[in-house]
Design a protein around this nucleic acid. Structure first.
Ligand SMILES: [Mn+2]
Ligand SMILES: [Mn+2]
Ligand SMILES: [Zn+2]
Ligand SMILES: [Zn+2]
Lengths: 122, 122
DNA sequence: TCCTACGATGGACTGAGTCCAAGTCAAGAA
DNA sequence: TTCTTGACTTGGACTCAGTCCATCGTAGGA
């Protein structure tokens, strides 16, 4: 645990946080000016493989890193400004995929993205 | 309708097709050797805004273009090799997002991605 | 104190996609 | 028929996110 890793972990504290790697880097650099982008990417990669952070991919733009990894949830994204909200749909989406629609796959994960316009974008 | 656009549209014919822009370009170039990448991107963009083709974004890799746009469906993706299959889950995922989880958004679209290992990847 | 190994660094590099200035071409005007 | 015009295409430069890599610094052990 180096000071760089600690700072990255601190920046990613709290729920409802969905920062890009460059945003993480900017905030980390605020506390530790010479931290490099490479180190931020390395640390984020480790946090992801430890299961502490979830990578949220976002349609062509930069991935977002989500520390809310211990409470399963889905995302609601504004098609206009890109704002992300955590949402908790009812039901288990995995149950909606009948066996004959699984084609022999071992399905382990479902990712649901709701899209629409946020209140500010009308 | 130019010959370039016709060739791109022809390459994207049929269901269960999920090609990247570069794959579309390669196949189009097979028939029309000097077609440029820019034209392929332009034409794909037009087909997408006409609603004839759906853009499927794939976690860091190149977007895939899906001509099966008139039959709503979701995708099952192999976490190992990236293979994509069309699937038709039961139920309407939009109905699973209660009003109090919409935060004032006008939700218009849901995208569900099932992930797991395909039969070849065990 | 000196070594060593792990991690950090910055800069080069890649892949996907966008942008743009210049070239081509077909259809309508004269 | 020839000219004009505008839409489409082209290739290359450029951007952006992310990866790679050679080198450097440093904390901890001998
Ligand atoms: Mn989240
Ligand atoms: Mn499909
Ligand atoms: Zn918005
Ligand atoms: Zn596979």
């Amino acid at each position: 645990m180096t000071s760089q890793r600690r700072v990255v972990a601190e920046v990613l504290d709290g729920d409802h946080v969905h920062l890009t790697a460059d945003e993480v880097h900017a905030r980390a650099a605020h506390r530790l000016p010479e931290i490099s982008r490479a180190t931020v990417y390395n640390t984020l990669g480790e946090l992801v493989s430890l299961g502490e952070v979830i990578e949220v991919s976002t349609d062509g733009r930069a991935k977002r890193y989500d520390p809310n990894a211990h409470h399963p949830h889905q995302h609601l994204v504004c098609s206009n400004c890109g704002t992300i909200r955590d949402v908790h749909p009812t039901g288990n989406p995995l149950a909606d995929l009948p066996a004959e629609e699984r084609f022999g796959f071992t399905v382990s994960e479902v990712e649901v993205t709701y899209r629409g316009l946020c209140p500010s974008c009308v």
